[in-house]
Amino acid sequence: MIISIASGKGGTGKTLVATSLALSLSENHRVQLLDCDVEEPNAHIFLKPIFDKRETASIPVPVVDEEKCTHCGECSRVCVYNALAVLKTAVMTFPELCHGCGACAYLCPEKAINEELRGIGVIEIGRSGSVDFVHGVLNVGEAMAPPVIRQVKKHIFSDGISIIDASPGTSCPVIEAVKGSDYCLLVTDPTPFGLNDLALAVEAVRSLQIPCGVIINRSDVNDSQIEAYCDRENIPMLMKIPLDIEIAKLYSRGIPLVLGISEWKDRFIDLFEDICACVKQEAI
């Protein structure tokens, strides 16, 4: 089963939920955590994994064989990212703009374009106790997170429980991280921003046809608007994590919630059971 954790708004507690869920389930299940927030991965700060494998994350970029090229311009016409310019006597490529879609090489009538791999990040694979851990790190200055996320997700188990920590927002990296999940947990905080971005995230996961449920983090007296929204949209409210100084202190020291306050472990196991029930219901 693949469970992704997304949010819309940033800083709501995705990683808090992802790390605590992974640790709670790892006693009785085969569990892996995939940190797909490749622009700013942070789950490793809490799980402190030992990495034993590193891979380069790369995308294929065009290399033009000037001998074969007739400067017909087809490659630049089909490139929606404007990563190639064709002049009368020269072809220029701009690899930093290339998304690696391969259209130029595929459609070149002279077969003059080969692709070579350009590294844009690294994938690190390791373990934290009984949790398998994978994360991707996009190189500084690179703009394209989705290819790195795709490469992280190649490591998803075929069995067991895979927990994906997504980035905030609702743009390409989030879609790439969340798609293919059996369930998506949406973590929000009880603020107008939290609600606004939660609604956007709900729209995004619904368009991917992934069932979702909500967790309110820093829950306090202002939960009612989020609750009313979830009622209206028929989205289950699965957990509330209170606004609590002890939780904040633990988090600031890099200690996962379930390791700092052990009674939370049972709540995360219950959360998993609720998710399983939702997924089962969805399948009917």
Partner: peptide, 18 residues
């Protein structure tokens, strides 16, 4: 053609004038 390009505006504009 570069005016509303999502990226690479200078490249596509320069190619057009070339």
């Amino acid at each position: 053609p570069g005016e509303k390009a999502s990226g690479g505006a200078g490249i596509v504009a320069a190619q057009a004038v070339a």
